[in-house]
């Protein structure tokens, strides 16, 4: 069978012939779930999209290493590095350890994926298991002059980066437009620019998911895990990075900046993004409250428990 494959590369906005760096091997990374709630249709679409890509590459006789992560720390409620860790909020609500929340929803995610016949990835790394790798990347970014420390937290310096490398290429955003569309920093902020994002955050006394570092007891910024874990398992350059379109900005844009800042060049050849699921034309999402979980969809299906014969 021929191995021709054309994929739409979000970075170049073109369909490109797929040409792996080191054939017959292919490195594929896809962003996995943040495990603080049940998987919904949107999760199913992302998982199935990259499952079919994984299956198709195997079908074409490539040797594929597929890495799909689990975010179990650092995903804050708001993209501006404010608000609380989503998992911590859930843990407090349910009086559980954060890692109990993680385990619970990760197990349920795996059950849902098995029902959908989504193959398990080759490696499923967790952010909390790669704190050292993330700290090492922060050190590299600081040494290159693209990050600064304030009161035990470390931020990526988008302006310093943009002077040398274009920021916003993946999402097609211009830094001037981004600035005019972002809330100005208040006097309290530790950031130099509203576009800067956290690489390491010092933990408040109430924040129990914390690790020691040279800067403070704290936790990594959300975007960092994917940069650190994808390159750890797939190498400094790898073939395909996938995710939902909702992750394009800021998550993937920040990932590119981190890799270029820390490793000197971009790591990903082809960026692929699946589109959203809508309900009656409206975006579906947990924050909008109109999502349907997979268990709700499956409910009533193939649940065989004890049947009872009642004697009249």
């Amino acid at each position: 069978m021929s191995k021709r494959l054309y994929i739409y590369n979000t970075l170049t906005r073109k369909k490109e012939a797929f040409d792996p760096i080191n054939p017959p091997f292919v490195g594929l990374y896809a962003c996995g779930p943040t495990v603080y709630g049940d998987a919904h249709l949107g999760h199913a679409r992302q998982a199935i999209t990259f499952d079919v890509l994984y299956r198709y590459l195997l079908f074409l006789d490539y040797k594929v290493r597929y890495v799909r992560n689990i975010t179990d720390v650092g995903h804050l409620e708001d993209d501006a590095d404010e608000g609380e860790d989503k998992i911590l909020v859930k843990a407090r609500l349910e009086s559980l350890e954060p890692m109990e929340v993680v385990q619970h929803y990760m197990n349920r995610y795996h059950l849902n994926m098995a029902s959908l016949n989504v193959l398990p990835p080759s490696i499923e790394p967790r952010a909390s298991g790669h704190i050292i790798e993330q700290q090492e990347l922060i050190v590299k970014i600081m040494e290159a002059g693209y990050a600064y420390e304030v009161n035990g937290s470390v931020y990526f310096d988008v302006n310093a980066y943009h002077e040398k490398h274009p920021y916003g290429q993946l999402s097609g955003r211009k830094i001037e437009d981004l600035l005019s569309n972002t809330r100005a920093l208040d006097g309290q902020s530790e950031k130099r620019s509203p576009l800067d994002f956290a690489l390491w955050k010092k933990a408040d006394p109430a924040h129990i998911m914390r690790w020691p570092s040279r800067w403070s007891e704290g936790y990594p910024g959300w975007h960092l895990e994917c940069s650190a874990m994808s390159t750890k398992y797939l190498g400094m350059q790898f073939d395909i990075h996938g995710g939902g379109m909702d992750l394009l900005f800021p998550h993937h844009e920040c990932e590119i900046a981190q890799n270029v800042a820390g490793y000197g060049k971009p790591s990903v050849r082809y960026w692929m993004h699946n589109n959203m699921i809508t309900i009656n034309g409206q975006k579906m999402g947990r924050s909008l409250g109109n999502f349907i979980t997979l268990d709700e969809l499956f409910a009533g299906d193939h649940t065989r428990c004890w049947n009872r014969l009642m004697v009249p």
Binding site: Y8, L41, A44, T49, N117, N275, I279, G281, L294, F298
Partner: peptide, 27 residues
């Protein structure tokens, strides 16, 4: 919102019936 239960393979087929770069409307 849900009129009945849908099996996992129906969901999978529903999702694959759209190209991954198009939006997909649930109903």
């Amino acid at each position: 919102m849900l009129e009945q239960a849908y099996g996992p393979m129906t969901i999978r087929f529903f999702i694959l019936q759209a190209h991954y770069r198009s939006t997909l409307d649930f109903s």
